[in-house]
C-alpha cells in the first residue's frame, strides 16, 4: 500500500466531503486541536475578583467580550482575511491589537495550532498567525461560506469561554448551554455586520476586560493561560 501525499490526500478528502457546513462544524468543534480549553481571555480574573459569580454575570461578561471586545474585531479581521484582504497587514494588526501579553499569546498560539491542523488535514498552506486571520485564510483556501463561518467562529469563541465559566464559577452544564443559546442572536448579528465592515471599523471599548487580562498575569493561582 502506498502512503498518499498531502496533495493526493487533499483531493481524496475533498472528494469525500463536499458539504462545506460539515467542514465548518469540524473546524469549530471542541475536538479540533487549537487548544481553546487552555485560555480564558481574562475571564478567570473576573471570576476570582467576584465580578462574574453566576450565569447572569457570565452572560453579561460574554456579551461585552463579543460586542465591545475582541469578538467584533476578530470577526472583521476574519472576514477581511476570508475575502482577499492583505494578509501581511491583517496579521500585523491582529497581533498588535492584543491588550496584554497573555491575550497576544492566546490568539497567536491558537492561530498557529489551527493553521497546522488545517495543513495536516487538508494540505492547505495557512499562515501561522493570529487566530481570526488564520481562520479567515482557511475559509478562503477551502472555499467555505464566510457568513456561516463567522457565526460559528463567534459562537465557538463564546462557547469556549462559557465552558471556562462552567468550570470556574462553577455553573451547571445546562446553565452553560442556556448562555450559549442566549448569545446566538448576537453572534449572528455581529457576523452579518462584519461581512459589510471595512478594516477601519475594527475597534471597541472594553477597558475592564483589557485590565482583567493584564491582571491575570499576576493571579496567585491560575487554571488558565490567559
Amino acid at each position: 500500500m502506498t502512503i498518499p501525499t498531502a496533495t493526493a490526500r487533499m483531493a481524496m478528502l475533498t472528494a469525500m466531503t463536499t458539504d462545506p457546513h460539515l467542514i465548518l462544524h469540524q473546524l469549530f468543534s471542541p475536538a479540533f486541536p487549537v487548544g481553546a480549553f487552555a485560555w480564558s481571555h481574562g475571564l478567570e480574573t473576573a471570576i476570582q475578583d467576584g465580578h462574574v459569580s453566576g450565569g447572569e454575570s457570565a452572560e453579561d461578561w460574554l456579551r461585552t467580550a463579543l460586542e465591545f471586545g475582541a469578538g467584533w474585531s476578530d470577526a472583521v479581521l476574519c472576514a477581511q482575511a476570508a475575502t482577499g484582504g492583505d494578509l501581511d497587514e491583517l496579521e500585523a494588526l491582529a497581533a498588535a491589537l492584543s491588550p496584554s501579553s497573555e491575550r497576544r499569546a492566546e490568539t497567536l498560539e491558537q492561530g498557529a495550532a489551527f493553521a497546522r491542523a488545517v495543513h495536516g488535514v487538508w494540505g492547505a498552506e495557512i499562515p501561522e498567525t493570529a487566530y481570526p486571520v488564520a481562520v479567515g485564510a482557511t475559509f478562503k483556501a477551502l472555499g467555505l461560506p464566510v457568513r456561516d463561518g463567522l457565526r460559528l467562529y463567534l459562537q465557538s469563541f463564546a462557547a469556549n469561554l462559557t465552558s471556562a465559566a462552567v468550570r470556574l464559577v462553577p455553573l451547571g452544564q445546562t446553565e452553560g448551554q442556556r448562555i450559549t443559546l442566549a448569545l446566538m442572536p448576537l453572534c449572528a448579528e455581529l457576523a452579518d455586520k462584519a461581512m459589510a465592515a471595512e478594516l477601519d471599523d475594527i475597534g471597541g471599548f472594553a477597558p475592564m476586560l483589557d485590565i482583567q487580562s493584564q491582571r491575570h498575569e499576576t493571579l496567585y493561582s491560575r487554571v488558565f493561560r490567559s
Partner: peptide, 17 residues
Amino acid sequence: RLRLDGDASEVLSRFNV
C-alpha cells in the same frame, strides 16, 4: 482601536465595560 457610539454613559455604566 477605541470605538464607542451612541449612549456612552449607558455603556460605561455596564459592570464589565
